[in-house]
Design a protein around this nucleic acid. Sequence first.
DNA 1: GTAAATTATTTACGCGCGTAAAAATATAGC
DNA 2: GCTATATTTTTACGCGCGTAAATAATTTAC
Lengths: 343, 343
Amino acid sequence: MSKQKIRNMDAFSAVCGVSRPTLSKYFNDPDSVKRSTRDKIEQALARYDYRPNIYAVNQNRQTTRNIGIVVPNLADPFFSEIGREVELACHDAGYSPIVLSSHGRPGLEASNLNALWSLKPAGVLLAPFGRASDVSIVEAFAKDVPVVLFDANIEGVGEAFIGTDNNQSVDLMVEYLCRSGEPPCFFEMKSPLNPNASKRRQAYLESMQRHGFAAQILQAEGEGWDFEAIGSAEGGRMLSENAFATNTVLCSNDRLAIGMLSAAYGLGLRVGHGPDCTLRIAGHDDHPYSRFTCPSLTTIAQDYSEIAARAAQTLFAIIESSESGSQRKETLLDGKLIMRNSA
Amino acid sequence: MSKQKIRNMDAFSAVCGVSRPTLSKYFNDPDSVKRSTRDKIEQALARYDYRPNIYAVNQNRQTTRNIGIVVPNLADPFFSEIGREVELACHDAGYSPIVLSSHGRPGLEASNLNALWSLKPAGVLLAPFGRASDVSIVEAFAKDVPVVLFDANIEGVGEAFIGTDNNQSVDLMVEYLCRSGEPPCFFEMKSPLNPNASKRRQAYLESMQRHGFAAQILQAEGEGWDFEAIGSAEGGRMLSENAFATNTVLCSNDRLAIGMLSAAYGLGLRVGHGPDCTLRIAGHDDHPYSRFTCPSLTTIAQDYSEIAARAAQTLFAIIESSESGSQRKETLLDGKLIMRNSA
DNA sequence: GTAAATTATTTACGCGCGTAAAAATATAGC
DNA sequence: GCTATATTTTTACGCGCGTAAATAATTTAC
């Protein structure tokens, strides 16, 4: 059953009756050879175990078909989901995706870019940390390699940016909350790493002003990526201290909201929009678990698939046209209001 | 600021005053050259931008310093966490880890192994699907490359296996539940992919018999990786039909438990071990979100770090001694009971 | 059937590095 | 200071493949 192994392309050329340069053409683009020779090659490929040595293949190329995908933290479901979509898109387009997580450590982002550099990738899809990113390294990298940013923007870096329009999405939620009950307070991390956080805060302030309500922002102490723990500890503290001016809290993201819901449950507070409820909590991102919180979480859905698809397509277009000089494009997608039971 | 780029090792040899073969030695093992030459090299490295072309480096080697890490699904926090630990362990040991997720699709596991094959890895850490894995491909792969399995075992495949002792962990939980209230029913997927699921069912049956109670197993319909959704839909249905013989449910894993907790909340059931509670729910795995469910989930903690560390160390030992002939080792680690509020 | 166009083969070189062998140099021991 | 040992340099070859140029074979067009 196990097919005979072939050492190299010369040996394979011998057994399949096609010259080595033609084989080389075939492996670089199967459509570039005549149908009959292609058939001959593929029949031999079925009989013998041969695949080109990728190291030898890539040695001379100044660029490969590798695409790097760098995300801040694969443990965060948002990135694991969007990373998956991007990876599959690259694969479908005939590239070799390489997903790298920085595990929540900005220092690893730089390491990952350095590691990628050695792989001579055709392009990179990068969701940067933002504020915590080593911008000089990202910039230097983006000068050498086509880079498309997603999720978090760094002004002027990379060929393009695809993300969610926080102004639109937060306004959608604020409008809904104001219309259906008391105006929301805003709950966030004191020193958020992600630039979307500050965009959302700003959007909240502007939206509240437009609706003619007083804004109130409450900030949780704490560092790192344990958002649920921080949301639970700090949110719980604020709830028990009656720190919120209204009975409605808009959390900067779902993971904070999940923590706060847990704290509210522990305090015996009834959360939701029912008549017997004393608190409304809303989130942002449509985290995979937000359907299963108690109560289920009203939130904003970012269009993961669309962000992933657009980012990938944008990068492919740049790679295939090798046009790095054109105007940097920023694409902002709309969020959707997901009404569940928590608000 | 940007350092001058050096084309290749010859050019670098010229600017740093060390011969190319010595440089080659240095890059393969910095300790293999004299201190003074090492200093000379590293000073030049600081002044010039040079790194060896990894494709040229790996072209002739029959094995590289790459280590493949293949997990069934990075979207599952268990694997994203354990994958992270393993990745860092490889990195710390001077290897180049490459994490590949099969995204819940057994077919991708085979593709991932094939892709890894081309990378000539020194070894692979594999958490296989188990029942759904293409065992013949995994076997063929493991004959060529040192493979250490973790989480899920495939008898006789790979050099070693590291996982959790489901007998011990389930018994721990059953014992606790029986001692502190009504004996547990067991809730699981009807056709689970993961081999741990059937081990846990078996362990539950044996443990209940030892304790002298009647066992009851309830199985949720549904395929795929949406465990929370399945747990919620099927668990909710069973709860509302009073399908459970006792007021205590042990779920095969935390994700099912999270779904069932959500359903119980929707049904207005009070879950926990307090006097006013009518239902106890326990899980298994200590999922990162199990601290934040409502109520927080009593569960079994698998020792992620220890599994990761042991798996990595086992692989390193095999690689470095190049002993593939020795006895296949199976290591089972104990789980810990994490008592929270749900049971 | 013949000329033109397409495709394949032959030949040959180079990429960047690993690595082996012999010669040269540096270091350590006494 | 001298020998024995450790380390580096010199020289040279090969890895597996990309790729260019010239030639040969095949296909297409008419």
